[in-house]
Each structure stands twice: as structure tokens, then as C-alpha cells.
């Protein structure tokens, strides 16, 4: 176990990151702790003799996700200092995240510097697909884990080292539940939903659509063949998140992709200005 930052001895593996070696902690993971209160007045045993064993109460008042949030804040500072736009792509498996990403990279890699962190339970297939486009990619295998956390991303940055002013895509594990709660330090979560799924998914998985800043409705070239009501789906998404932006695209035919690129460029410029 890493004694500096508390890397778990779990099953998560980051490509090129061997947990046997020394970690670099130049990101300065903040470890702040609340000042807990020693309050014996509430102890059930009410014993005050020194050294006498007694049960006592300790006020903690700490966020369960506090540690993840500290790592996320450190990541966010790191991104802000370098003017990097970071997007956390979340969806169910099979929504076309990787296809959307490879198309985006192919279309934009001449104009923008891009990098990708791929999260999957197992295999490095997705990172290899991305590397085939000629862009830097790093795979994180979460093992049994159902989401990426900010600590994994922090370590991934050490080996990936995305350039100043670049765009970093983090493709999260295909899962509409768990990644919602884990801030990675991204500028936005982008939820990708395809028209071959249920239009009621924003209501079935409200936490994710609430956490997302943008919803991309993918595979719209298939709309004539499926009974998916796009307007209804968008209505549901706005119910859980009145401020969510929505784009309709087909990563296969390219329809609507220009809007997505506009959104990307605008947000990259905002990231370049700094927070």
C-alpha cells in the first residue's frame, strides 16, 4: 500500500503504473482532516478515571466521499494550471462512447491536442482503439470496480501527461449508476445515451443525468427504425436537470457532430482562460 496517498491494494490497475514502485506525488494530494471533538460527556460509560477502558463517542462529521473529493480538487487545480479541458464521458455499455470518441479524435486531432483515459473493468481494447487514431491513450482497469475515482485519474496523469491547452477525455466504465457520485476533477460529465436504449433512462438513472452538464443523444441515424421518442427523452432529462444541454448526433454518419465540435471548442477556450 502506498503510505503517502493510501493507494489501495485493490484490483485497479493503471497501464504502466506498477504499484511496486515509488509514487510521485507532485500533485500534492491534500490530506485535510476535520478537528474531531473528544467529548466524554456523551460516552455511554461515563467513566472518567484515567486509563479506565470505556466506550466513548467521537464526532466525525466527515463526508464519505471526502477523500475522493480532495483528489478531485487536486486534479482540477492541475488541469486549471495547464488550461486543460477535461470531460468525463459516462453512459451505459454499448451507447457508442468509444465510436463517438474515435470519430471525434479523427476529425479534430489536426486542430487540437487530445488525450484519452479509458476506464474498463478488464482489457486494453479501448485504449488500443484510441491509440490506433494516433492519439495518446491510457487504460485503467478497475478490476471488480464499477467506476473510476479521482485517485486513479491522478496517477494516470503522471504517465499520460496531457499537454497544456489540450482536451482530455475520460471514458468512464460503462455504468449509469456508480460514476455519478465520483468527481474526477472534470469540467463536465457528458452523458451519452443512444436511441436503441429506452427513452426513459434519464428517469431510471436520475443521478447520472442530474450530474451531467451535457447529454449526447447518439445513433440518431437509427431513429426511423426504433420506437424512441427523442422529445420525450429530452423532456425527461430536463426534469431531473433543468439546465442540461442536449445534442443529437450520429457518430456513424457524422450528423450533428459539428454541433458537438462547437461545444467542445467553446469549452476548451473557457478552460484555456482558466478558472
Amino acid at each position: 500500500m502506498c503510505t503517502v496517498c493510501g493507494c489501495s491494494e485493490g484490483e485497479a490497475r493503471i497501464e504502466g503504473h506498477d504499484h511496486g514502485h515509488t509514487h510521485h506525488h507532485e500533485q500534492g494530494h491534500g490530506h485535510s482532516h476535520a478537528e474531531p471533538l473528544h467529548d466524554y460527556s456523551q460516552g455511554p460509560a461515563h467513566a472518567h478515571a484515567p486509563g479506565l477502558s470505556q466506550a466513548r463517542m467521537v464526532q466525525i462529521e466527515q463526508d464519505i466521499l471526502g477523500k475522493n473529493n480532495e483528489y478531485a480538487a487536486a486534479n482540477r487545480r492541475w488541469f486549471a494550471e495547464r488550461g486543460i479541458l477535461v470531460l468525463n464521458l459516462v453512459s451505459s455499455p454499448g451507447s457508442g462512447k468509444t465510436t463517438l470518441l474515435t470519430r471525434t479524435i479523427t476529425d479534430l486531432k489536426q486542430a487540437l491536442e487530445l488525450a484519452v483515459i479509458e476506464g474498463d473493468q478488464q482489457t486494453t481494447f479501448d485504449a488500443e482503439r484510441i491509440r490506433d487514431t494516433g492519439v495518446k491513450a491510457l487504460q485503467i482497469n478497475t478490476g471488480k470496480g464499477c467506476h473510476l475515482d479521482a485517485h486513479m485519474v491522478g496517477h494516470a496523469l503522471e504517465s499520460l501527461s496531457p499537454g497544456d491547452g489540450s482536451v482530455l477525455f475520460i471514458e468512464n466504465v460503462g455504468n449509469l449508476v456508480c460514476p455519478a457520485a465520483f468527481d474526477l476533477g472534470e469540467a463536465h460529465k457528458v452523458a451519452i445515451l443512444s436511441v436503441t436504449e429506452g427513452e426513459d433512462k434519464p428517469l431510471k438513472y436520475p443521478d447520472m443525468f442530474h450530474a451531467a452538464g451535457l447529454m449526447i443523444l447518439n445513433k440518431i441515424d437509427l431513429l426511423p427504425y426504433v420506437s424512441f421518442d427523442a422529445e420525450k427523452c429530452i423532456g425527461y432529462a430536463r426534469r431531473v436537470n433543468p439546465g442540461i444541454k442536449v445534442l443529437q448526433v450520429s457518430a456513424t454518419t457524422g450528423e450533428g457532430m459539428d454541433d458537438w465540435y462547437c461545444w467542445l471548442r467553446a469549452n476548451r477556450q473557457l478552460a484555456a482562460i482558466g478558472s
Binding site: 466506550a55 466513548r56 463517542m57 464526532q59 466525525i60 466527515q62 466521499l65 457520485a181
Partner: peptide
């Protein structure tokens, strides 16, 4: 909220 409020310890 997701918070650890308090503990009983010994």
C-alpha cells in the same frame, strides 16, 4: 448528504 456523523469507540 453522505456523511459519517459519529462513532462509538473504545
Amino acid at each position: 448528504e453522505m456523511r459519517i456523523k459519529e462513532l462509538e469507540v473504545e
